[in-house]
């Protein structure tokens, strides 16, 4: 993400947020991740940037578990959105990540005067259809926050059209020990029909967690995949 060069402390803060999301998804800790990280709302730009990097997944526990987000967290989420708008020349992944945050906000915001309208038009996803399976999977893994049950968008539809290709990308990522990509692809696969049964996805996700799960960003995607599979939210 283009904002990620703002501070050498950013990766650590992003990991802290991811660890908080994992904990909340597992149901072991109901404190909102951001609140665990900062006690008050005097969030500095580092935290805002970390929230922007984490993106819509920061509120994934609320989406999946159908719980209301903490007010502080919601406010911070909104501020991060406003602080880092996509530029005219931003890559599609940045635009989609931004779009996913707005969609999540619209879904979780209580109705009322603070609400700011509908989700804006979708960014372009036309390149995904022509992308080789390796590139498709890499892109989808970056956009794993869009892999949410019950939500449709152009990226979801592109993924649905190519379940075997995404499965191949999962295998490729595991073979190359790119655990972040493998976990993100695995999360997408939980949403797709037509995944070859020989893939062994569930054992594969356990393997990804075993090998790469000490990185909370990997653990977040694996846990998201499990939660999607368990269907606790429907």
């Amino acid at each position: 993400m283009e904002q990620s060069g703002t501070s050498p402390l950013l990766p650590g803060t992003v990991q802290d947020l991811a660890a908080g999301v994992v904990s909340a998804l597992r149901g072991g800790d109901h404190a909102p991740p951001v609140v665990r990280t900062v006690a008050d709302d005097g969030a500095d730009r580092l935290l805002l940037a970390a929230v922007r990097v984490t993106g819509a997944d920061l509120l994934l526990p609320n989406v999946l578990l159908r719980t209301a987000p903490h007010e502080t967290e919601l406010a911070l989420f909104r501020r991060a959105l406003e602080a880092f708008p996509p530029r005219a020349d931003s890559a599609p992944a940045i635009r989609w990540s931004h779009w996913a945050m707005i969609r999540t906000l619209r879904r979780l915001e209580p109705p009322g005067p603070g609400r700011r309208g509908d989700t804006p038009p979708e960014p372009d996803a036309s390149r995904l259809d022509a992308a080789p399976w390796q590139v498709l999977t890499r892109q989808l893994a970056v956009l794993a926050a869009l892999a949410v049950p019950g939500e449709e968008c152009a990226v979801t539809r592109a993924a649905r059209r190519r379940p075997v290709d995404v499965s191949r990308g999962f295998v490729r990522a595991v073979r190359r020990r790119d655990w972040q990509q493998a976990a993100g692809a695995g999360r997408w696969l939980m949403l797709l029909d037509g995944v070859p049964t020989t893939l062994g996805l569930e054992a594969g996700l356990d393997f990804v967690e075993l090998m790469g799960g000490t990185d909370p960003r990997v653990a977040l995607q694996v846990q998201a995949a499990r939660s999607i599979r368990a269907g606790v939210f429907v």
Binding site: R168, V171, R172, R175, R176, P196, T198
Partner: peptide, 13 residues
């Protein structure tokens, strides 16, 4: 069928 699914990954690798 199994090979048609996965051979492309192994070739790539």
């Amino acid at each position: 069928g199994y090979l048609a699914d996965w051979l492309p990954v192994w070739l790539d690798d």
